[in-house]
Amino acid sequence: MLRIGVDLGGTKIEAIALDRSGRVMARERIATPQHDYPATVRAIAGLVDGLEARLGAPARVGVGTPGAISAATGRIKNANSTCLNGQPLRDDLQSALGREIRIANDANCFAVSEATDGAARGARVVFGVILGTGVGGGLVVDGRPLSGANAIAGEWGHNPLADEAPGLPCYCGRVGCVETWLSGPGMAVDHARHGGGALDAATIAARAEAGDAACEATLQRYVDRLSRALAAVINIVDPEVIVLGGGLSSITRLYAEVPARWGRQVFSDQVLTRLLPPLHGDSSGVRGAAWLWPMEEGE
């Protein structure tokens, strides 16, 4: 049976249809209605209806969203697209489409994609990391996303980063969160604090590769912080594979330098966890939404 994945972003909504082998049968992208929840529901339903009409077949539908569904209320919480917060998105989409809909946090969808047919295919326990404007994470066990009792499994970005003082304020109201150090803006702030001037993360990484000493120092601080933050994840979850996503995942030296350092904090005589770049890149989120419906026996 076809699977349709929808990636609900702040500026765009993307939908793809996958066949049972994971081949993309159709894809469509539209702008996200701004600050308009009813229009967002209609837009998602319209994308699904349009893809099914083009392909002439019904599909199972999964949706990746910012935030998560609250276990207490059944409504969206923690979404940076604030018009979603407090809304019964799953119920409204199920009503609009007349079928069961599966919804997961967008970082969970990224992890599902890479665990299903991406870089971590075949691994039982996979941690997917988003390093971009923010820092997110998703945990997949045996191909299924682990949500947790509070629907926050994998949200390592809002843990404190040890051995960093004074901490930086985070938008969540806490101080010293991993996100404030390891996001793209966090790298830029750290560079400026050390006298390097106003540069974005991509420029810092490029200049470090070109031999700029100040940018190299910033990148080395970043590598050290990322290795310590991921070591804490390994100590708790012990994944077989960690896959990096988001804009900073394109910094190729992370894949060698971070594992070379994280063993100092991992409680083991050796670290077998692999750190890998994503196979599907920017498409992982929308593919993972489709794979919220895993393959079943007989398909």
Rank of each mutant, 00 (worst) to 15 (best):
M1G: 09
I4Y: 01
V6D: 00
V6P: 00
D7F: 02
L8Y: 03
G10Y: 14
T11M: 11
I16R: 00
I16A: 01
A17Y: 00
D19K: 12
S21H: 13
M25S: 10
A26T: 04
A26I: 05
P38Q: 14
A39R: 12
T40Y: 12
A43P: 09
I44K: 01
V48D: 00
A53K: 14
R54P: 02
R54A: 10
A57K: 12
A59L: 05
R60K: 12
V61R: 07
G64W: 04
G64Y: 03
T65F: 08
G67W: 01
G67S: 09
A68K: 00
S70R: 01
T73D: 00
G74I: 07
I76H: 00
I76F: 01
N78L: 03
A79L: 01
T82Y: 04
C83Q: 13
L84I: 02
Q87N: 09
L89S: 03
L89K: 05
R90M: 15
D92I: 12
E100D: 15
I101T: 11
A107V: 15
N108W: 00
N108S: 13
C109D: 07
A111I: 00
E114Y: 12
G118K: 03
A119P: 06
A120K: 07
A120Y: 13
V125K: 09
V126S: 02
F127G: 01
G128I: 11
I130L: 15
I130H: 07
T133M: 07
T133N: 12
G134P: 10
G136H: 08
G137L: 08
G138Y: 05
G138M: 08
G138I: 03
V141P: 03
D142K: 05
R144N: 05
L146W: 10
S147R: 14
G148W: 12
G148C: 10
A153E: 00
G154I: 02
G154A: 10
H158F: 10
P160G: 07
E164D: 06
E164S: 02
A165H: 11
G173V: 10
T180D: 04
L182W: 09
L182K: 09
G184K: 07
G186M: 10
G186K: 03
V189F: 09
A192T: 04
R193F: 05
H194A: 15
G195A: 13
G197W: 06
L199A: 11
A201Y: 04
A201F: 04
A202K: 15
A202S: 07
A202C: 03
I204A: 02
A205D: 04
G211V: 13
A213T: 15
A214C: 05
A214Y: 05
C215V: 03
C215N: 02
L219Y: 06
Q220W: 06
Q220F: 04
R225E: 02
L226N: 08
A229T: 07
V233F: 05
I234Q: 11
P239S: 10
I242G: 12
V243W: 02
G245E: 01
G246D: 09
S249T: 05
P259G: 04
P259Y: 08
R261W: 08
R261C: 13
V266S: 14
D269F: 09
D269G: 14
Q270F: 11
L275T: 00
L275A: 06
L279M: 12
H280M: 12
S283Y: 11
A290W: 01
A290R: 02
A290E: 02
W293D: 04
E297I: 09
G298F: 01
G298N: 06
G298K: 08
